[in-house]
Amino acid sequence: MPSVALPAMSARRRRRPAELDPDNFGAAPPVLATIEEGAHLLRAAPTRGWAFYALGTVPFVLGFLWFWADMSRNVNAADHVVEASLGLALLFVWMKAWQAAAASEWLHVCAGAPAPPWTWRRAMRTLAFQARWQPLKVVLLPLAGLLNLPFAFAAAFFHHLSAVGDGTQPPAEATRRARLAARAWTGQNFRSLGLVALLSAPVFLNMFLVCGLVPILADSFLGTQGEATRNAAAYFFNTTTLAAALALAHLVLHPLTTAFYVMRLFRFESRRDGRDLLRVVGGEPSEARQPGRAGQS
């Protein structure tokens, strides 16, 4: 069948700036290779990045579990739900700021460049930027998930915001970079999210079994009786156990997802500024600090 030109569409494509044209993004790197590079990046990352990540994430996860258990079990929970949710929102912003610091460190590891020093001013800028954008994620991401199609863009956008919003550039420029990278390689983005979702099922099951079996094993070996041994069905299937398993699965998978999006951003921006080539030309750091070595542009 002969192809029919669509004048309206081609006119619209012509008007689009070159940097937003998907034809100029180049071929997407393979999903599995990028995830693998992300895993390698996590292994090669210095302790500082991990410390930043833990400093933000652990308090939020603990706060979230306390919030869940308190709201679902405490008969007086309705009296302090406003204060508790305020605390959780503050912990969320705290977590996102530290995760941005960690993602920024990891992005610099990718580029093989030393990360700029953390000053008080830079930290405040990072906090302000993340506090401005990331709370919207709580609402926009589930909404995008319901609408399905924009979900990959929204997930990538907020992850990229973490990596670029580190207080080293104006907020408008950071947002532009995140938006541009999120628009690129939609198919790869969806495939990677599908893969993470597929991976999350066994991880969640694993964590759920750990949450359930540890008290039972403790009873067998140590004789410590608790809710789990008195009433196993209720212990396994109460919503707090489920939330705990969910939180643990999140703790396992989220660093990998973050590292994947850091690698994705690095690969995308390298197509424009040759950052990956510059790293090779400008003297190679040690082998251990080369997470993005394979498949350079």
């Binding site: 709201m71 929970a77 739900v81 949710s85 919207l136 709580v138 919503t239």
Partner: peptide, 14 residues
């Protein structure tokens, strides 16, 4: 927005 979202979650649990 985040506060309201967590508040709604809290209300849902309560």
């Amino acid at each position: 927005v985040a506060w309201l979202a967590f508040f709604a979650l809290g209300q849902f649990l309560v």
